[in-house]
Amino acid sequence: MKDEIIIAGFGGQGVLSMGKILAYAALENDLEVTWMPSYGPEQRGGTANVTVIISDEPISSPILDTYDTAVILNQQSLDKFESKVKPGGVLIYDPYGIHHAPTRTDITIVPVDAMEATIEMGQAKSYNMILLGALLKMRPDVPVEAVVRGLKKALPERHHHLIPANEAAIRKGMELVKE
C-alpha cells in the first residue's frame, strides 16, 4: 500500500494542517509517512502545498513530480497539479471559486462542495476537515478513528474541545462524496 498525495491551495486554508493531521493518523496506524511542505514567506494569501506520502514500506523521496491523489483548493493549484495526477488517480476539488473545471478523463474527478457545506454548518474553520473527509472516503488509507487520534496529536491541548466539531466535518465530507 502506498498513497502519494498532494494537497494544494492558498495559505490560510488549512492545507498544511490537513496534511499534518493525515500524517499523524498514519503514525497512529503504524504506517510510514513523510510530510513535506512548500510555501512562501507569507502566512496568508500565497500558495501553499504539502506532499504527504503514506506507505507500509520505507519511503525514499519526500518530493515527487506525480501523485496518486490530489486535493485541490484553488484555481492556481488546479492548473498546476491536474496534469500531475497519475492515470487512474483521484483528483478531489472544491468547485467554489473554480472557473475552469478539470477536464481529464483518465482519472477519477471528485467535486466536493466543501465551502457550501462549511457555511451550512456554520463553522468556517473546519473547511479543510470536510475535504479531508472526502479524501478518506476516496482513499481509506487510514480509518477515521486514527484521524481523530491524530487530531489530538496535531492540535495543541487548548483546542482539543474542537475535536468533535472537526470529526463532524470529516464525516460530512465523507457523505458529500457521491457514490
Binding site: 499534518k20 503514525l27 510510514e32 509517512v33 513523510t34 510530510w35 513535506m36 511542505p37 519511503i59 519526500p62
Partner: peptide, 9 residues
C-alpha cells in the same frame, strides 16, 4: 531546508 522542514518518524 528539506530535511529541516519535513516531518517523518
Amino acid at each position: 531546508g528539506v530535511v529541516g522542514q519535513m516531518m517523518e518518524k
